[in-house]
Nucleic acid binder design. Structure first.
Lengths: 224, 224
DNA sequence: ATGTTTATGTGCGTTGGCGCACATAATGTA
DNA sequence: TACATTATGTGCGCCAACGCACATAAACAT
């Protein structure tokens, strides 16, 4: 169940079989850069057990994440949206496996206009919802709520209660200070929602996290 | 030049002529709701002189804009992305004209896979960039920078230096207090960038606005 | 075993924006 | 003309987050 890409898995057998020869398994290692901002994109990636952050970097070096892609989607939507670069960076946030496909092969299948095209467009719509909700959430919700949301979203894409990530890393995703992450994490620890130490966060009580999180989490989840 | 939709205008004559019978001119009045959140969408709209805000509303009533659509794009992308509702509201922010097209007719043309499909997908990609940049901007930039960006983006979509909008309205777009808008606007007035009074803002010196604005403005503009 | 690097904790002064309560002034209405 | 409504100005206390400076402690390297 976890070891597949849900977008691919939802295709009719006929379409899937046509794709199969073009799918190459690859391994994502933590922190690996899949796409550089403005860099040339040559493949799309269908994560299975790995997952990827879509990141923007400002001229002063500040960063913030706009979306998270796991086995529900694919990385590289610009390649069928009529571009060959993206303005954002894509980096591996959870190590694991993915299938890779050459841009040209993907585009050829996309142009057939069948179930594959539909699935890709549907996913893109749900990603738009995720990014939009992030925009609103960044403006209207507290650090603690946003941290909860991010942990829950990550948890949904990792098949474990143990997440490997430092406060520093999270601060770059949420676009906040490292210290602010430590403080918010400490509060969540006091509530019994999580525990953590040196680059490891354990989800102790998902229910507590769901109580703290803002509505944005459910909104995006329901859309899928 | 202003009285057309650039997305439609960029199509080859052949494709455009096929669309023409399906395009009905409509008038957008200020504040008109084009789509309600989760409401059924029956048409797409190609603005010519009007423009539209894409808005999210939280359960507590707070609102924030994620995107702005003028004659460079269309309203209702969900209809070709495989949905028939959107999670956001679309409201008229600048009164004016648009062409309307029935969802079914648009979808039929979209499925042909030609220039029309390409244009729609390209535009969707640029909208994704806009929304992403909004997400990051909301997190990392000051009220004054965001106000500048919003005024400039609006100015680009209105064919006049006079904008009709109250501070209250702007506060709902930016997701901030009305008072915060008044204060930031006052600063811009002192710099000679704008002047304003009772629901009217005049762009006095675009250059000054461009000096105050964050990089997000150019990023989104260049993407187009 | 020791020193270095990395991850987190903590305090403190500053600031930007919020929530609120009003004041002022322009516009609309009877 | 008088009164209500709407738009903007302003002040004040409050709080969350920032920027910075460190302290502490675990993990790693030699």
């Amino acid at each position: 169940m976890p070891n597949l890409n849900r977008l691919l898995a939802g295709l009719p057998a006929e379409d899937y079989e046509r794709l199969l020869p073009h799918l190459t398994p690859v391994t994502f290692s933590l922190g690996e850069v899949i796409y550089e901002s403005q860099g040339l994109m040559e493949h799309v990636y269908f994560p299975t057990t790995g997952h990827v952050s879509l990141l923007y970097t400002m001229v002063n070096g500040a960063t913030a994440e706009v979306g998270l892609v796991g086995n529900e989607g694919l990385v590289g939507i610009a390649l069928f949206m009529g571009g060959d670069t993206t303005p954002n960076q894509a980096i591996v946030q959870g190590a694991g496996e993915a299938f890779r496909m050459k841009a040209a092969a993907m585009q050829e299948e996309f142009r057939r206009g069948g179930a594959f095209q539909l699935a890709l467009l549907r996913y893109t719509q749900s990603l738009i919802t995720q990014i939009s909700q992030t925009a609103v959430c960044n403006r209207l919700h507290t650090t603690e709520q946003r941290l909860c949301r991010w942990i829950l979203m990550t948890h949904d894409r990792v098949h474990s209660d143990d997440l490997q990530m430092t406060h520093e890393f999270i601060s770059n995703m949420l676009g906040i200070q490292r210290e602010a992450v430590s403080i918010a994490a400490h509060r969540l620890k006091n509530k019994g929602a999580i525990s953590y130490a040196r680059g490891r966060i354990r989800i102790a009580d998902r229910g507590s996290l769901e109580e703290c999180v803002c509505e944005c989490y459910q909104m995006v989840r329901d859309e899928k």
